[in-house]
Amino acid sequence: MSMDRRKFLKIAGISSVLGLGASVAQATHNIWSKGLGPDQVAQNSKALKAKHWAMVIDMSKFRTDADFRKVADACHHIHNVPNFKTPDGKVDIKNEIKWIWKETYEHAFPQQENPYMEESLKEKPFLVLCNHCENPACVRVCPTKATFKRQDDGIVMMDMHRCIGCRFCMAACPYGARSFNWTDPRPAIDPRFENREYPTRTKGVVEKCTFCTERLAVGKMPACVEAAPKGGMFFGDLENHNSEVRKIVKTRLTVRRKPELGTGPSVYYLIGGKDHA
């Protein structure tokens, strides 16, 4: 039978499109339908559970610089957070990665400036970290759900395997809580503090505090909370009326960063310290 070239090309084109389409559909179906069945998974009995994990920070308990260093190091060391420095030993502000760190009052709460405030108060350091917002802008913008809000406990989590490194979340976060791996972090990880039980990240993905989900899963408090001076940091379930954090937030004066943006941060800062617990 004879067929002209045009018809041949049409048939070839349609068959390839159908073939490609079928294989793409097959692959997508495979990706979406695999997964572990409920009889294949279990939870550690010691795991800590909550409906809404939240944190209260009492800055009055942090008296020396060493107090901050201890908290930041606890987190950064167990999570293999790299320490980027410039050739002259200063912090490399371009490449730096930080999950929890200290900022002065005027930077932690930019809208609350008071020009007549005492200098020492303006310079007062505050611990800042990801706020694990109730209405997170970063989750709203992520095109792959690489950052997502856990349904059961409200933690804003990072899936390092899915992140495409578009950094939309970094643009969206109103608190500057996120860091990006501009290059391979491994050379900048201090080998003295390497934690072989936790992965590193690779270049090209965003990272941030995860409220230590891996520790919560085995019944431990987040590393920063454990390393904080006594009464400095509280961590618990805001939906549990008996939890420390709920009681503090209910009875004492606390502030959150940029609450007017509607993000609903879960990190509360206690005002007017004094001895509590």
Binding site: K94, N95, E96, G165, M170, W182, K203, G204
Partner: peptide, 10 residues
């Protein structure tokens, strides 16, 4: 090398 080769930063 990674995007660090650009002038972008945190």
């Amino acid at each position: 090398y990674g995007l660090g080769i650009t002038g972008l930063g945190r």
